[in-house]
């Protein structure tokens, strides 16, 4: 957990044969992983940076003109880009907040449960393991007014209400699928954090006269801070990249498009590699910005996120 990785005392400046051999071996062992990760991410990213400077469409591959930053200008001055970004941020904030609350409640239950532990843990893994596309389908059909059950089960909903006809209800359906699938993951991470809060400490707080709420706010949550922050960081970035559910459930209709979906559409459906690449770069940068903001705002311990 320390920032400095556990170093056997010394071995820093004056190198013995053994230390040198260790250094070489270590580098050799991580080389394949590094090369692979670089080939599939860093290299394409650089290429996207390069392509984004051209007016380049696959429908006319020979008309490749250098246009400088104009693709970025086009994207950034288009209200579509900002609408989709706002939509994405909204989805991220709402889903992570809801997941955090429900996930924490689930984690508390799982932490306390003695009987049927295996059953609970097995079922909590099922949403995690299910393909997002399948989850999207299940919820789309559940909300469907011709074949779904949601309208019938919700007393205040008319039986023929079409959830996918307007923005508000569409986005609710999308978020329902997203939240359903990822809450279990969140609750498992929080459960691991809860396990770090010692029973002794809670009993001491009880003896000191703390109420249930006080124990939660003054003992449990502060001691789980690191776990919560890392969980939030990973989940928020995951939610920011939302794509599968939107693709399956609305295909971006009714302005439900996310920034990832926009990028995808420009590249794969419209073959606009120039502007698509510019959007890719912008997407990557915006993820960095979001990550940076979360890390700074919530003071996430990056060393922990990095697994040091």
């Amino acid at each position: 957990m320390t920032v400095q990785t556990a170093t056997a005392p010394g071995r820093v400046t004056e190198e013995s044969e053994r230390a040198k051999a260790e250094n070489t071996l270590g580098r050799q062992l991580v080389l394949p992983a590094i090369v692979l990760m670089m080939v599939v991410t860093a290299f394409p990213m650089l290429r996207a940076l390069y392509l984004s400077l051209f007016d380049y469409s696959l429908t006319a591959p020979d008309d490749r003109d250098f246009v400088g930053l104009s693709n970025y200008w086009t994207a950034l001055s288009d209200s579509l880009f900002w609408r989709d970004t706002a939509n994405t941020v909204m989805i991220m904030v709402v889903t992570v907040a809801v997941e955090l609350v429900i996930g924490f409640a689930f984690a508390m239950v799982m932490h306390r449960v003695i009987f049927a532990r295996g059953v609970i843990r097995t079922s909590i893994l099922i949403p995690y393991g299910i393909i997002t596309v399948v989850s999207g389908f299940a919820w789309q059909f559940a909300f469907s007014n011709s074949n779904g059950f949601v309208n019938g089960w919700l007393p205040f909903m008319g039986d023929d209400f079409n959830w996918f006809a307007q923005y508000d209800s569409s986005i609710i359906a999308i978020m329902a699928s997203e939240i359903w699938k990822t809450t279990p993951f969140m609750s498992l991470l929080l459960l691991a954090g809860l396990a770090n809060v010692s029973e002794d400490m809670l009993e001491a707080a009880k003896v000191d006269g703390a109420t249930w709420w006080q124990r939660l706010y003054k003992v449990i949550l502060p001691n789980m801070r690191a776990a919560i922050m890392v969980a939030v960081l990973f989940r928020a970035l995951d939610a920011y990249r939302i794509f599968d559910n939107i693709f399956v459930m609305t295909a971006g209709a009714n302005k439900t498009e996310s920034i990832s979906f926009l990028t995808y559409r420009q590249t794969v459906e419209q073959f606009q590699l120039g502007i698509g690449s510019a959007l890719s770069v912008l997407l990557f940068l915006s993820v960095l910005v979001v990550a940076f903001l979360i890390v700074k705002l919530f003071r996430v311990d990056l060393a922990q996120a990095r697994q040091e």
Binding site: P9, G10, R11, V12, T13, E14, E15, A19
Partner: peptide, 9 residues
């Protein structure tokens, strides 16, 4: 036995 920092353990 000396470690890297020169301190004899």
């Amino acid at each position: 036995k000396k470690y890297g920092d020169g301190f004899p353990a």
